[in-house]
Structure formats: structure tokens, C-alpha cells
Design a protein around this nucleic acid. Structure first.
Length: 413
RNA sequence: GCGGGUAUAGCUCAGUUGGUUAGAGCACCAGAUUGUGAUUCUGGGGGCCGCCGGUUCAAAUCCGGUUACUCGCCCCA
């Protein structure tokens, strides 16, 4: 057992995992591209202020979830825990409000100092899409439709379910929050210890508590849908109608909430039951107050982020790598000719590697393990005659082929 | 930060009521075949039994601690 391990909550990604994750990102790029999104790569760390300001000093998030450091120049910096704040900062920094709307896609690592679990790492990877500068419900529909198309393209149409809710506008939210707190205050004796704390810090979170006694209390709690003002319910109705129009199945989940108060209207999550407690595979919503809170103009925003590891685990979209052609030169002349032949074949689009060490048996053995389709043997005999010995590894049959005919012979075999 | 489970070879795992040189399969290396693989046969390398301490004549095995992994809780921007 080696003592050299990656740091807690981090891991090396290679082989099948790497292929699956790459496939998720490739699919994301292609799909988001068809919705007019362009790439924005922000730094993976920012001044701590960028992440801290929208959250409020005292929250658990700031105090125990962020990777925060003081750098050598004495600056407080934080490894990005999510994409949205950094994207909004980039939007402000680069004056992007000059050409609204902005459709921005990003992907890469993010960091949270948490206890690792299945599908939850300290360094994890996300795909992220933000649509800035559209405050109409149709923008929300576009975003959800795009997420749904991505999930379907990843083969997850049957494995995930869309949970949808509205948080209403500022006024509706404040109204509801007050009603909710009043209700829970009257049922304190039945609430769990955790929820009593939440009553102070984040009452909406009591709604998705996993405690059985809490669930009983929640069942009769006032509903947000009963506290929506006209504008808010009209907004939500449009979103629902739009989803039906574009064929995205959804489930109105009144317990789906967001804690931070820059969120408004649409909140959604695509959830699977196949990943234990970490069922959310992609989630997002509308955050019209965020950019202003960061010190920018009043620009509306709606976006989502998806966990690449979780999506990759479910979809296994990576497939197998292309089968290589392995060059096996024998002798000096063969080695030189082998270099030349390899380059020619690569130019034709083949995956070509060379195995120049060991006896023929070893080389064949390695070629077999590499899942090679062909072995190309080039010895002194072959060089003299201007041919190679081409062996098809699946059948074991082999024949001599002129240099000039090699690419064609491989293609047609 | 809090609770449960697990820790034996590169991987997956056996290992009896504590008992003498700790096993298997797969993988790896070599040979049978010095220019022909995947099948077969023969042989081989590899383990401080996570770590530290305790009980005992004796610990992979029992006890305590610790670390890592894992499942859940908190949190989830």
C-alpha cells in the first residue's frame, strides 16, 4: 500500500473516467453551441470578496466550505467554489453589458472543503451556462430546454427527473418567508435540532429536511404558491406552458428552494435516484439580483451548472478509444522506414504507435493488450522488397503489402 | 463539524474458537516458441495483514487510539 495518495477529496482521472468526462464536456459544448453560447474561461481563483459578498459573512458556506488563502502578496483569494459569481465578475470587468444578452458557457474544476461522499469531491468539475440580460420567462425556458437536450444526448433521458419550482419575486418571497417563520414558530416542539437552527439561519431549508418529524410539520406548512403575487404567478405559468410547448417533462416540487436572497422566480434541478444522497446532477435558476450585488449594473441572469463527475458516472458516454495500428520495425533499415510509414498513416487519419523493443512475441503481446487492430512488421527483408507485412490481429491472417498500398489495405480490411 | 461500516499482494477477495513458513483468482515476469499475440502448459517475483499502543506464552484475528476509504447527517453559493 503506497503512502503516496492524492489529497483528501481529490483523485486522479484517467482511462475510462477521463473518456466519460471528456464526452460530457464535448456534448455540452456542442449542445450549448446550438443555443448560441460562447466560451468564457474565468480564473479558477478570485479575490475572496467575489464569492463572499453575495453570500454574507456569517454563513456556513463562507466559514467552512471555501478554500481560502492569503497569497504571498497578502491578498485574500479563494479557489472557485462555483462558476456563477466568477462569470458575473467577468461580465462586469469586461463591460459585457454593452452587447446584451450574453450567452456564456464554461467548464472546469471547482473546489469546496467538504467531507467527501459518493459523487462529492473537494475538487470536482462542472459545466456551466449563464444567460445574462434577459428577464423574460422565455429565457428560463430556453435554459431548461438546453439542459434537457444535453441530458438526453448523454443518454440520461430516462434516468433523471426535472424538479421545478418558483421562488417568486422579492415581494412574494418576503411575504412567504414571514408566513413560513410564523408557522414554524408555532410548531417548534416538533422540529428537529437542525431545523430549529435553520429557523434562524435559513428557514426555507426546513422545507427539504430529511428528518421524519420535520416532514410531518412541513406537510401542512404554508405553500409558496399561495403567496405569489400576480406578476410572479404569471411568470411561473409562462415557464410551465413553455416547457410543455418544447416537450420537457417536469414535476412541480414546492419543497425545492434556494437559500440566497438574490434568487428569484425559477429554480430547478435534474435529479437521479442512482447516486445516493448526491442526486442532483444539474441545477440552476434565476438570479436577477446577483450582478448588482457584486457592484455591477442591474442585469437579469438565469443559469445552471452540472456536475461532470456525476453526469459521467451515469452516462458512460465515453466509449472506447480508436484501435491503433502498431508498427513493429526490425533492424536499422526497418526502424527508419517504420518512422516514415507511421507518419504517412497518421496523415491518413489512423491512430499509429510504434513498438521498437523486445522480441516479436512481446510486441505482439503488447499490441494485443493495446487492442490494436493491425500490426505492421517492417524488417530488412521487407525494406529490400519495398513491402511491409500487414497482420490483422483479430483473425491472425497476414500478407505482404507494398508501401504505397498500405493505407488502402488497412482501410479495406 | 457529527454518526455508522470497512482496511490482508498491482486489482477483487478468502483466512476457522487467537496457534507455528498468510492463501486464491486475475494481473505481472520468464520459459515451452531467438520474426508472430489473445488459448494451453511449466516456473517465478511480489504482503511491517493501514499505522501506534495494549492484553497474551502466542495477534491478520481480541481491546483502545489514530489515519485513510466508504455510506449517511450538517452544508449545498
Amino acid at each position: 500500500m503506497s503512502k503516496l495518495q492524492p489529497a483528501r477529496g481529490t483523485r486522479d482521472i484517467y482511462g475510462e473516467d477521463a473518456r466519460n468526462m471528456t464526452a460530457v464536456v464535448d456534448t455540452f459544448r456542442r449542445v450549448a453551441g446550438t443555443y448560441g453560447f460562447e466560451e468564457l474561461a474565468t480564473p479558477i481563483f478570485e479575490f475572496t470578496e467575489v464569492y463572499k459578498r453575495p453570500l454574507g459573512e456569517a454563513s456556513d458556506i463562507v466559514s467552512k466550505e471555501m478554500y481560502t488563502f492569503e497569497d504571498r502578496g497578502g491578498e485574500e483569494v479563494t479557489l472557485r467554489p462555483e462558476f456563477t459569481a466568477g462569470v458575473c465578475r467577468a461580465f462586469i470587468s469586461n463591460g459585457m453589458q454593452q452587447k446584451l444578452p450574453c450567452r456564456l458557457m464554461s467548464h472546469g474544476p471547482a473546489f469546496r472543503y467538504e467531507r467527501p461522499q459518493k459523487g462529492r469531491y473537494r475538487q470536482f468539475h462542472q459545466i456551466n451556462a449563464e444567460l445574462l440580460g434577459q428577464d423574460s420567462p422565455e429565457a428560463d425556458i430556453d435554459m431548461i430546454a438546453m439542459a434537457w437536450r444535453l441530458l438526453k444526448d448523454l443518454g440520461l433521458g430516462d434516468k433523471v427527473m426535472l424538479h421545478l419550482n418558483t421562488l417568486g419575486d422579492k415581494e412574494s418571497r418576503a411575504d412567504y418567508r414571514a408566513a413560513l417563520v410564523a408557522y414554524f414558530e408555532g410548531h417548534k416542539e416538533k422540529l428537529s435540532e437542525d431545523s430549529l437552527r435553520r429557523l434562524e439561519s435559513n428557514p426555507l431549508r426546513i422545507l427539504d429536511s430529511k428528518d421524519e418529524s420535520d416532514k410531518e410539520v412541513v406537510a401542512n406548512a404554508p405553500k409558496l404558491s399561495e403567496h405569489l403575487n400576480d406578476a410572479s404567478s404569471a411568470f411561473f405559468e409562462t415557464v410551465k406552458k413553455g416547457l410543455e410547448a418544447v416537450g420537457v417533462p417536469y414535476n412541480h416540487d414546492e419543497r425545492l428552494v434556494r437559500g440566497m436572497d438574490y434568487y428569484c422566480h425559477t429554480a430547478f434541478e435534474f435529479v437521479t435516484t442512482e447516486l445516493g444522497a448526491q442526486g442532483t446532477v444539474l441545477g440552476g435558476g434565476r438570479y436577477d439580483g446577483l450582478i448588482e450585488q457584486l457592484g455591477g449594473p442591474a442585469v437579469a441572469g438565469v443559469g445552471w451548472a452540472g456536475g461532470i463527475e456525476r453526469l459521467a458516472m451515469l452516462s458512460e458516454a465515453g466509449g472506447e478509444p480508436a484501435r491503433p495500428v502498431v508498427i513493429m520495425p526490425m533492424g536499422e533499415a526497418g526502424t527508419m522506414k517504420g518512422l516514415e510509414v507511421a507518419e504517412t498513416l497518421r496523415g491518413e487519419g489512423f491512430v499509429v504507435t510504434a513498438d521498437r523493443s523486445g522480441n516479436m512475441k512481446k510486441r505482439m503481446n503488447r499490441a494485443d493488450k493495446a487492442n490494436a487492430a493491425f500490426a505492421v512488421i517492417i524488417g530488412d527483408n521487407e525494406v529490400e522488397q519495398g513491402v511491409v507485412t500487414l497482420k490483422r490481429l483479430d483473425s491472425g491472417e497476414q500478407s505482404e503489402v507494398a508501401f504505397a498500398d498500405l493505407a488502402t489495405a488497412i482501410k479495406t480490411n
